[in-house]
Design a protein around this nucleic acid. Structure first.
Ligand SMILES: NC(=O)c1ccc[n+]([C@@H]2O[C@H](COP(=O)([O-])OP(=O)(O)OC[C@H]3O[C@@H](n4cnc5c(N)ncnc54)[C@H](O)[C@@H]3O)[C@@H](O)[C@H]2O)c1
Ligand SMILES: NC(=O)c1ccc[n+]([C@@H]2O[C@H](COP(=O)([O-])OP(=O)(O)OC[C@H]3O[C@@H](n4cnc5c(N)ncnc54)[C@H](O)[C@@H]3O)[C@@H](O)[C@H]2O)c1
Lengths: 264, 264
DNA sequence: CCATCTTTGTGCACGCGTTCACAAAGACAT
DNA sequence: ATGTCTTTGTGAACGCGTGCACAAAGATGG
């Protein structure tokens, strides 16, 4: 899995990594909790009363030991010899993630992507409520999208304040993203989900996560190329002492990393 | 399931320093290369000839030492005392990522999101070409989206074969995702970018990356809750060792989740 | 050619995350 | 109560990623 993280890269690395809190849940665990929650919700809808770490891990696509360790950070909610109570775990994880409360969200930039997000039903299902849709283009403001009127960015500050919005979603063109971000932060937003392919600069205390389709595709392309190169080369994991001097001008075969066996 | 079951992990294979020049680029580095590439492209467009690791790192939002180490996996492309040649680095990273070749992509599920992706200009800009748009709904097939006709999934196998598609993008409802995935893989696709909130099961040799808006929001909500209610600790006697002053939040983990690597 | 200055490339240490492996805990049967 | 069986919770080891700090490399100037 790479990868991750999110990717994400703090736009402001200057502020050291202070994350290691005494009792805080590890970031890697937090990132998996939604995954567990989704699997648990599915079980809940099928009225499954309990689930073992092995079963749940399979459903979530992770290692069972990892899952148990993740849950151990939340507390001891399991019963040895039985497993975990589905409903109870759903509640605990929801509470831990803060999903038991309402999170108003604004989406800025109602173009192709903003449109799709506004129409996405998955928002409300987890306590996220679209408080407003914002755009700077007068030709767009006023339109009704997904039952909501697109309002002008002039109203951003007022909306963020009145609706107590703390999460903003940026779906503007990259050139406008930093500016929109600054304005959101100034208005009081402290968490930003950025879809624009730009590195956002934010002050301490503001979280930024990014979703970048282009990066994802490029990562896939890298591995795809490596797979193709492996096919051309031998399947032997060991590589004949690649000569350092070789300038490799012509597509050198990418062999597998050392960490993965190669027997195909 | 990740099925990284080849846990034979040779702790220390015979060859000691195979990795350095033998080219096994760490996943974390691969995930950052697109970021560097974007920053370099911007510099290139401004006709900047060279850039130091410090400047480029700032533009990419990463630590300069990390950037230098990342580049060291690609080779020694810098000049001490000067920096890196922008054009040369653009080429090297592009080549490493496989962007010097054409990557035909199919998008399956032309609803809200598929529509937005089809209209997204960022595809072609990096060598990714939308080879076809596919949908199972007869009411949708035949429509022209972004200049391309939406074709029926019946044609999937033919298209994947004829166009040599190795990357598939899934934007169907979650219930159909696994089925679509299986079919894509059977047709010959070996890399999948999944937007549906589902854990995809794939055989070894197939890479899956996921983009999950809901998970991103939930991670933000978690941190938001912590920022807002650090003092509102519940019954489980937490020990707020650190005062709220240095909240500084933790950066989310790398987004590299959902990446399942399998030896082929 | 030598001195100085800038910046790369990397050895090293450290912390986080993952995984193994197993003792402890509890369910269940007798 | 006792024993057996299942599954959790976690100690410990290990590998990866990160960032510091510095020597080496090369540019630049005299
Ligand atoms: N469409 C996709 O599938 C897709 C995929 C990946 C990334 N992205 C990124 O998402 C962003 C949006 O993509 P899109 O296809 O929806 O673009 P789009 O051009 O269709 O929409 C952008 C919208 O932002 C609005 N906007 C521009 N400047 C603004 C400002 N300062 N304040 C508020 N609104 C402003 C525009 O009026 C427009 O409505 C882009 O950065 C794009 O790179 C899009
Ligand atoms: N819209 C968003 O912003 C958004 C955000 C995050 C995640 N998602 C996820 O992305 C996926 C698509 O979202 P959407 O809003 O576009 O949904 P949508 O319902 O608008 O579109 C889904 C499309 O998939 C097609 N489809 C259904 N079954 C299919 C099959 N077996 N083969 C081929 N095509 C099939 C449907 O005909 C439809 O056109 C969903 O899984 C959703 O959860 C969407």
């Amino acid at each position: 899995m790479a990868t991750g993280r999110s990717t994400q890269h703090n736009p402001n690395p200057a502020g050291g990594t202070r994350r290691s809190r005494g009792r805080g849940i590890p970031d890697a665990t937090v990132a998996r909790l939604p995954l567990y929650l989704r699997a648990l919700t599915a079980l809940s809808e099928r009225s499954v009363p309990t689930v073992s770490s092995e079963e749940l891990a399979a459903a979530a696509g992770v290692n069972s030991a990892k899952l148990r360790k993740d849950f151990s950070y939340l507390g001891s909610y399991g019963t040895r010899g039985v497993g975990y109570d589905v409903e109870y775990l759903v509640y605990q994880i929801s509470r831990e993630l803060g999903l038991t409360q309402d999170w108003p969200v604004v989406i800025v930039g109602i173009g192709n992507l903003g449109h799709a997000l506004a129409n996405y039903g998955g928002f409300a299902s987890r306590g996220f409520r679209v408080a407003a849709l914002l755009d700077a283009d007068p030709a767009i403001t006023g339109n009704v999208v997904a039952g909501l009127p697109v309002r002008h960015t002039d109203e951003m500050e007022e909306i963020v304040r009145d609706e107590r919005v703390s999460i903003g979603v940026i779906t503007t063109p990259p050139g406008a993203a930093q500016q929109v971000c600054d304005r959101l932060v100034a208005a009081g937003v402290t968490s930003i989900l950025n879809f624009a392919p730009t590195v956002l600069n934010v002050p301490d205390g503001v979280d930024v996560r990014k979703v970048d389709l282009s990066i994802e595709l490029q990562i896939l392309a890298f591995h795809e190329q490596r797979k193709a190169g492996d096919d051309l080369a031998d399947e032997d994991g060991e590589v004949p002492s690649a000569p350092a001097a070789a300038v490799v001008s012509g597509r050198g075969p990418e062999q597998g990393h050392g960490y993965e066996e190669a027997a195909g």
